[in-house]
Design a protein around this nucleic acid. Structure first.
Lengths: 334, 334
DNA sequence: GTGAAAGCGCTAACAA
DNA sequence: TTGTTAGCGCTTTCAC
C-alpha cells in the first residue's frame, strides 16, 4: 500500500488507533509494552502521521505566511532565511511569497489567512505601499521593516532603528570633519525612506550642522539612481565633502559616479551606505556602511508569541545598526 | 462566529452543503438561482473554504517543497523567487527551507514528504554533498543545478549548461588573444565545480590551448578565496594574462587581489566570472561575466508535470549561459 | 491504561 | 439539478 494510516498501525500492533495516536503524541500515559508494540508496528510499516489530517483535527496548521515584495534582494532574503530557521525551531512552517503590489498581496492573504492555512502573517515593508491597510484586525501579524504609529493597525513590528542608524553615520562623518554632507535617499513615498531621512536630519541638527534641503536627492534604492544622483549633486554644488547614501546599492552608484567624474574617494569625497551588503568590502574603495541588524529572528518570535499567547500585547521593537568602517570614508581635506 | 463553514453557508442559502461545494468548485452545473443564493450567502457570511479540509478531502495538498543549502545567496534566492511565482500560477504553494547539511535535509524531507504535506520536491545543488541519495524513489522530484547521470536517481533535473558557459568564457578570452588562462574553481568535491572545470578544460582544448594543471586553483566560491587564489597564482606564475573565475564572487576577489598587487585590469590582466550577480557592473572595473539562466521556471514546470502526469518520463534540461561583456576583460597586450 | 464514538470541514460517488 | 451517504486521517472527550 502507498501510505500506511494510523489504522494500519493499530491493526498491525493489535491495539486501537487511539492508542497509536497517544503514542505518537506522547501525551497520556501508555503501558510500556503497548508502546513498544506500537513503535514496532510504526517502524515495520514505515508509518508517518499525515500532517494535513493532524492539522484539521487539531484546528492548528502551525504555519506562518511571509509576504515580501520580492525574495531576491539581500535584505529580504536574509529576513526570510533567518525567520524560516527560527520558525522551524519552534515547530512552525514558514511559507514565503512575493507580492510586488497590493493586489497580489490581497490575493495571497486571502489564500493563506482567509483559507486558514496560515495562523499568522509576517509582512515585510508593509508601509511602502498601503498594504498594511489590507491586513484584517484579528490576524496575528508582525510588520518587518517599519511601523507607522499614526496610520498602522496595532500589531507587532520590528525594524531597524533609523535614528540609531542615522546617528552612527552622521557621527562618523562629523568625526572626520565633514560639514557639507549630501543625502541620497530612497523614494520619499516609502516609510522607510522617510524615516531614514528624518533620522539623518535630526542627527545633523544634533551635531550642530546646518542642514541644506537642496542636498537631499530622492532616488529609488537602485545603484543607477545613486549614480544619477551624484552627477546631479555635483553639477549643482561642488562644495560637498561627503555623501550619505541610505542604502549600499545607491552608495555603490555614487562611488562609481565619483570615479567617472575624476573625484577620488575618500580623499576628495567620503561615501557611506547602509546595509552592509555582501561584497561591500570588494568595491573600490571598500564601502563604509551601517550594518543592519537581523530582523528575522525577533520578528518570528514576536509573531509566534502573539499566536500562542493571545493575551500578549503588540510590541514594537527597534534594533540598532552597527558601524562598519572601511575605505570609502576619510578625514575631510583641509 | 469565528470562521463560517460550508454548513453555515448551506443553512443561510437554504440548500445542502454539497450544493455549496459545487458552486465553489464550479464543476457540476448548478441552477442559476441556486448559485446566486449561494453566492449571496457566501458574501454575507464572508465565507472562505478551509484549505486544509479541502486538501484532506481531495487527498492533494497542492504544495511543493524546495530545499536549498541557504536562501540568501543570490543564485538560490533567484531560483526561489521565480519558482514561487510560477508555482502559484499553477495553483501550487511552494515552501522553501534551508538545509545546510544532510541531516537537516533528511529531517526536512521527512517533515514535508513523509508527512504528505508536499507532493513534490525541488532540491537545489543536490550533489554538493550526498543528499541526492536521501530522496525516496517514488517522490516527484527535480534537482536544480546539476545532475550526475552515473550516481543520481532517475529524476528530473535542470541546470546551467556548463559546457556552454565554459565555451562562452573561453571563446571570449581566446578572441581577445589570451592563451595563458588561469582557472579559479569552486570546491572540486562539488559536482557543479567539477562540471565547470571540465567544461573549461574541454573548451580550452577545443580552442587549441594547451592546458596547464598548475593554473587551476581550487577555492570555496567566496570572494576571499578568490583573493587568496590570485595571490597564490601570481606568486607562482606571472605569465598568465587572464583569469577565468567560476563564479562572480571569486572573480571580484581576483579583481581586488590584482589591484592590491598593482596589476591593472584589463590592461595587464583580464578577469571573467560566472553568474552576473547584482551590481556586477559596479565593481572596478565592471565585471565581464557569463550570465546564468533562470532555472526556477523550468524546474517548477518539470516538477508539476511529473506530479500531474505520472506517465511523464524524467527529463534533464540544460539551459545556456549568456556572455555579458564589460570592462574587466580586454585584448592581451603585445 | 485503553477503546468507542464523535467530529474537524470538505469532497465525491451515488441516488433521487 | 440537487440531496444523501460516506468517508479523507487524525484527535479528543468520555466511559470502561
Amino acid at each position: 500500500m502507498k501510505h500506511p494510516t494510523i489504522r494500519d498501525v493499530a491493526t498491525e500492533a493489535g491495539v486501537s488507533r487511539e492508542t497509536v495516536s497517544r503514542v505518537i503524541n506522547k501525551k497520556d500515559r501508555v503501558a510500556p509494552e503497548t508502546e513498544a508494540k506500537v513503535h514496532a508496528a510504526i517502524a515495520k510499516l514505515g508509518y508517518r502521521p499525515n500532517a494535513i489530517a493532524q492539522s484539521l483535527a487539531r484546528g492548528r496548521s502551525k504555519t506562518l505566511s511571509l509576504i515580501s515584495s520580492n525574495l531576491i534582494d539581500y535584505t529580504f532574503a536574509r529576513i526570510l532565511h533567518n525567520s524560516e530557521k527560527i520558525a522551524r525551531l519552534h515547530g512552525y512552517t514558514l511559507i514565503a511569497s512575493s507580492a510586488p503590489d497590493e493586489e497580489t498581496f490581497q490575493t495571497l492573504m486571502d489564500d493563506f489567512i482567509g483559507s486558514q492555512r496560515a495562523e499568522g502573517l509576517m509582512v515585510i515593508n508593509a508601509y511602502n505601499d498601503n498594504r498594511f491597510k489590507l491586513v484584517p484586525k484579528n490576524v496575528p501579524t508582525v510588520f518587518v521593516g517599519g511601523w507607522d504609529s499614526e496610520k498602522g493597525p496595532e500589531v507587532n513590528s520590528v525594524g531597524p532603528d533609523q535614528t540609531s542608524i542615522a546617528e552612527i553615520a552622521v557621527q562618523h562623518l562629523v568625526d572626520l570633519g565633514h560639514r557639507r554632507i549630501a543625502m541620497v535617499s530612497g523614494p520619499l513615498s516609502e516609510k522607510t525612506a522617510q524615516d531614514r531621512v528624518n533620522g539623518f536630519i535630526t542627527a545633523m541638527h544634533e551635531a550642530g550642522i546646518l542642514f541644506d534641503d537642496s542636498l537631499v536627492v530622492e532616488c529609488d534604492w537602485s545603484a543607477s539612481s545613486g549614480y544619477a544622483a551624484f552627477n546631479q549633486l555635483w553639477e549643482i554644488d561642488q562644495s560637498i565633502t561627503a555623501v550619505s547614501a541610505h542604502n549600499d546599492r545607491m552608495a555603490v552608484g555614487v562611488l562609481r559616479a565619483a570615479y567617472d567624474n575624476g573625484i577620488t574617494v575618500p580623499e576628495q569625497l567620503s561615501v557611506i551606505g547602509v546595509d552592509d551588503i555582501p561584497l561591500a568590502s570588494y568595491f573600490a574603495p571598500s564601502l563604509t556602511t551601517v550594518r543592519l541588524p537581523d530582523l528575522g529572528r525577533e520578528a518570528i518570535e514576536l509573531l509566534i508569541q502573539s499566536i500562542e499567547d493571545t493575551s500578549s500585547l503588540p510590541r514594537h521593537v527597534l534594533l540598532p545598526g552597527e558601524p562598519i568602517i572601511r575605505d570609502s570614508t576619510g578625514p575631510v581635506r583641509p
